[in-house]
Design a protein around this nucleic acid. Structure first.
Length: 425
RNA sequence: GGAAGGGUGGGUGAGUGGCUGAAACCAACAGUUUGCUAAACUGUCGUACUGGGUAACUGGUACCGGGGGUUCGAAUCCCCCCCCUUCCGCCA
């Protein structure tokens, strides 16, 4: 959520930035500013009345003490009057605040100045490319066929016990999952991230804190009986660890990592786009999260991008990094890099990581601040990235590394799997 | 799930209707002094909204788990909810 004060003071900058999202927010912004003005006037009016009542109350107290009860009576009357008035004003003020908040929820983050204008994914900017696209032999199988053939993942069984989008991993397939998770966590730890095992279920406040609520309510699984949500990503519990916290400047940056399963209801999309591991309701992911000083958040974003880059290189997967254009960027992000791995059998790029700087957009809702050396508190910048999401990594590993001998395990992963090839049973 | 007790500033912890935005102590920060990795002393030391001021700063309001109520006036009384602790029950 944007800060009203920021919109008020830098209206044109905000509007120009938002324009990159290929949407006009000027009407909403104007409405917010209009409400803001009324809100502040109302606030002042209320405060003045309360101040008067406070003075009177004190006087009444003094008069009572000196036994002069009659003299207190008119003052009592006035405070009663004031009270009736303030009650009305308080209601108005609460309404204004609510209206303003609802409108603010509609405004996405302002893209960073380097983010280009764009309508769709076609206008994203490729900033890096690595690896050879393997020229597979005549037998070029998509991962769902490989998964079945090698008995790694059983989609049908998942349907039986839960439903579509909940695969069952078994044998070497399960082992591969666990190997990847451990590999990613170890790499994150080496890079200085502290590992957390957070709850996989969060409350409403946490959902609002990172911005999944209210915008993406339908995306999360909701447990009505306890009013809790299944996490769609570890970003939610990890970032919320610092909700309502004021850090010391020297504590920054905070670097966190965690593995969690992720749950997404995701409606829509059909056909081969969602086949196999391409789109699931439950999947595993290792997330990296940082809370950063505003002056260094973009350097940190680059750093996180490098980290993810390293992971993909160690997994020997051809990939590209693209910087999203305004129109393709998520609601809460100020700048996002997507990582896409080329899946040789499906012959398409699969998104495996999204690494973003949210600047103060999340921090404002989270109320995560730090006290600077000048003694002032200001909002931190929050960043996060998938490092990495498993399913599409597994898909591309299976597809890109398929050989006549079996599925070749990249060198870096062998210590974790304990085998060099996945062979047919 | 049952019973009892409790939730106050970074921490410990006073405070049962006005003198309390909140004692005291600890921690932290700044300074002074003395000097061997420290002590003593002095000062500062919550957050949000809002008015005035370029700013330094300064005025006001709100907040003592959350929400409502009583009262001229509430951290303090009443009601609802949440959470924590202990005991019992259940259980991996």
């Amino acid at each position: 959520m944007l800060q009203v004060a920021n919109i008020r003071e830098n209206k044109q900058l905000v509007l120009d930035g938002l324009a990159k999202r290929n949407k006009d927010f000027s009407i909403t912004v104007d409405e917010i500013l209009q409400i803001d003005e009324t809100r502040r006037k109302t606030q002042k009016q209320l405060d003045d009345l309360l101040a008067e009542a406070n003075v009177l109350s004190k006087e009444i107290g003094d008069l009572f003490k000196s036994g002069n009860k009659e003299a207190a009576e008119p003052k009592k009357l006035r405070t009663t009057e004031i009270k009736e008035e303030t009650k009305k004003i308080e209601v108005t003020l609460a309404e204004l605040e609510e209206q303003q908040k609802q409108l603010l929820y509609l405004i996405p983050n302002v893209p960073h100045k380097d983010v280009v204008f764009g309508k769709t994914a076609d206008e994203n900017v490729e900033v890096y490319k690595w690896g050879e696209i393997p020229s597979l032999s005549e037998v070029k199988k998509p991962h769902w066929d490989i998964a079945a053939e090698y008995q790694l993942i059983d989609f049908e069984l998942g349907v039986k016990i839960t439903g579509a989008g909940f695969p069952v991993y078994s044998g070497a397939g399960a082992r591969l999952q666990r190997a990847l998770i451990n590999f990613f966590l170890d790499e994150a730890q080496k890079a200085g991230y502290t590992e957390f095992i957070p709850p996989h279920v969060v409350n409403e406040d946490s959902g609002y804190g990172t911005g999944q609520l209210p915008d993406k309510e339908g995306q999360m699984y909701y447990i009505g009986a306890d009013d809790l949500y299944l996490i769609p990503t570890a970003e939610v519990p990890l970032t919320n660890l610092y909700r309502d916290v004021i850090l010391k400047e020297e504590e920054l940056p905070i670097k966190m990592t965690g593995y969690t399963p992720c749950f997404r209801r995701e409606a829509g999309s059909y056909g081969k786009d969602v086949r196999g591991l391409n789109r699931l309701h439950q999947f595993d992911k290792v997330e990296i999260v940082q809370l950063a000083h505003p002056s260094e958040s973009y350097a940190i974003l680059e750093n996180m991008v490098d980290h993810v880059k390293g992971l993909l290189q160690k997994l020997e997967l051809p990939f590209r990094i693209i910087r999203l254009c305004g129109g393709d960027m998520g609601f809460t992000s100020a700048m996002t890099y997507d990582f896409e791995v080329f899946s040789a059998a499906q012959e398409r790029w699969l998104e495996v990581s999204s690494t973003s700087n949210f600047e103060t957009f999340q921090a404002n809702r989270l109320k995560c601040r730090f006290k600077g050396s000048d003694g002032k508190t200001q909002l931190v910048h929050t960043l996060n990235g998938s490092a990495l999401a498993l399913p599409r990594i597994v898909a591309s590993l299976l597809e890109n590394h398929q050989t006549a001998e079996g599925i070749r395990i990249p060198k870096a992963l062998i210590p974790y799997t304990g085998f060099e090839f996945i062979r047919k049973k």
